[in-house]
Write a protein that binds this DNA or RNA. Structure first.
Lengths: 353, 353
DNA sequence: CTGAAAGCGCTTACAG
DNA sequence: CTGAAAGCGCTTACAG
């Protein structure tokens, strides 16, 4: 069944069929109705490739979930396949919310996962082969993002979530970042206001914007409140659960361990909880913990974890909207958007007064 | 940049360029090299729509995640947007593993979410518009699946995961189901072998294959072991957390509450835990609980939940493989595949001897 | 081994 | 208001 068949059935030309499909105005409603009826009756759907070729947009957006661990420190690598993105509490909510938002506006979405630098071609091929009208990259580090930009033609409609940029003016794209600095600042401030003075941090992957900003915001708060950050109180993690465990272990070996620790994401907080319990310490009586991300597990930990909530679905919706706006317009409108986050108070922090 | 441009640069015809792209044999390696070099140098990617139109397959698979709650009992409906698929512990791992597997074989994947019967057209349109070469439906109930089949042309390559079928011979497709009956049977057997005699169940959505089979397998085990299933020990849930809470509350109101309960999925077990703790009962001392699905949270509950693990990523990989096999062959090979599951013993079950 | 040409199923100026 | 025709960028018999 092609448009010509419909045309014959109704007794008009392909042009006319095409015009009603594309909602051209000057069609008498009687003709329109006849065509529409035939389309319904014969269950006709226009071939999307032919439409694309003839110049109609694809109505497809791409999501590229990058989770490259090429240079990761060996002892952090979890070799088990299952430990890849499958249970990922960061990408899954984003992806789902993005798809929903796109679907609502009648866009399809193509999802690709990228586990190594050598798979970066997937992004370029999707764009260059014209499979998508626009796409979003999420989870990429700075270096990988640069590589992505290299082969990216200027007129491609690209969005980047949670990716650090050198200079906004140089690399045109739609940038969406959560206000990690401010949120981490608030986090430290919260602990300080609870009366804590010896405060530690488990950092995230400092190669990623979120890791760096959370660390910076945290330090800024200590500085503003004239508190010293003891080197012993810093544990370097990489956002994975085992790294949270290791980092917390290290912090607990301080001469005078901190009474509160900001853990840069909830996944690491799970590891940190284990380390703390192995040291026979109690949360929050001996040590207060505040996480970041408000992943689903966090509410079920014991004690339930106080954390920072960034609405990934808000971020996803915003991204989809901005992307679609540019696609409809046919040209990229570069923007930079900061999404706020807030503290979800549960039971892992205690007043020290 | 189109194939003609490359042809001119190299000094051959479009036909030849096309032949090297499509790996035709009889091309002298010198010509092949020249063309390949030009393609690389000028960063040329063939237009996917043009290729499709000309008869090359699309290399795209569709995932249709259906989560229709049209007829759901009002008090179970969670109106909050966030409660949709975003945190879904069932679909996310499947989707990710499926995408990975497809990507490995150089397939793209289009993901669509379907929240109501009126959105079912998305599936047909993706197929009819030739956006995908094959697709998988997951999460659909029996009735919705029937509706999907209605407009599905016989030659479409369709897979269905965890969907009950009336008659395998009638509706040709690739069916992948987990061995819910056997696993639920094992679950009950496990409790019985621990010495429990008063065993209850929180059922899942009985309109779904998994819900029904789990219930059936459970009943079969009791029957085989000559145990009576007390009506008071049955709580009807629908796989959502609140329904688990309500169902467990009901069970606990029995005259002589059971000492062990099989909860048909882990999400409901979370609700059940709450109900139990509100009744001042201890798991597993007062009551043993076994779940199903081994979602990520289950290991972090207190006590960690004993549950059944179906490897969703195995299921996803199998599905992708079967789908791709059919797509490559150009015609659907109907199959029915049962994937096994096994008990993950943790701390929520206790011997009664 | 390789080019010219037809064809895939649409859309859209162009002309009427 | 509407049809004939060109064109989108490929692939693939066909012929040589």
């Amino acid at each position: 069944m092609k448009s010509e068949d419909i045309a014959k059935i109704v007794g008009v030309s392909r042009s006319t069929v095409s015009r009603v499909i594309n909602n051209y105005p000057d069609i008498p409603s009687s003709t329109r109705e006849k065509v529409l009826n035939a389309i319904r009756e014969y269950n006709y759907y226009p071939n999307s490739s032919a439409r694309r070729l003839a110049g109609i947009k694809n109505s497809t957006l791409g999501i590229f979930v990058v989770d490259i661990k090429d240079n990761e420190n060996p002892h952090h690598v979890i070799k088990n396949d299952e430990a890849l993105l499958y249970d990922n509490t960061f990408f899954a909510p984003f992806t789902n919310a993005f798809i929903d938002q796109a679907n609502k506006t009648h866009y399809y979405v193509l999802v690709s996962t990228i586990y190594s630098t050598s798979e970066l071609w997937k992004i370029h091929s999707a764009f260059h082969e014209k499979r998508i009208d626009g796409g979003v990259v999420i989870g990429s580090g700075k270096e990988d993002y640069k590589k992505i930009l290299q082969q990216m033609k200027q007129n491609f409609i690209l969005a980047a979530v949670d990716i650090e940029i050198e200079s906004f003016n140089e690399n045109k794209a739609i940038y969406i970042n959560t206000n990690n600095h401010q949120a981490a600042y608030d986090t430290a401030k919260y602990l300080i206001e609870l009366g804590h003075r010896n405060i530690g941090i488990v950092t995230g992957d400092l190669g990623k914007l979120s890791g760096k900003k959370r660390f910076d915001g945290f330090k800024q708060a200590l500085y503003d409140y004239k508190l010293h950050l003891n080197d012993e109180y810093i544990g370097y993690g990489d956002f994975t659960e085992p790294s949270g465990y290791v980092a917390m272990k290290k912090i607990l070996q301080s001469h005078n361990p901190p009474t509160a620790v900001f853990v840069s994401n909830d996944t690491m907080a799970v590891g940190a909880y284990t380390a703390i319990s192995e040291s026979k310490l109690k949360i929050p009586d001996d040590i207060s913990i505040i996480g970041f991300d408000n992943i689903k597990i966090s509410g079920y930990m014991s004690p339930p974890l106080t954390t920072v909530s960034v609405s990934l679905s808000d971020v996803a919706r915003t991204t989809a909207e901005l992307l679609i706006q540019s696609v409809e317009k046919g040209t990229l409108t570069p923007v930079q958007k900061i999404v706020n986050a807030s503290i979800v108070k549960r039971e892992s922090c205690k007043s020290k007064k």
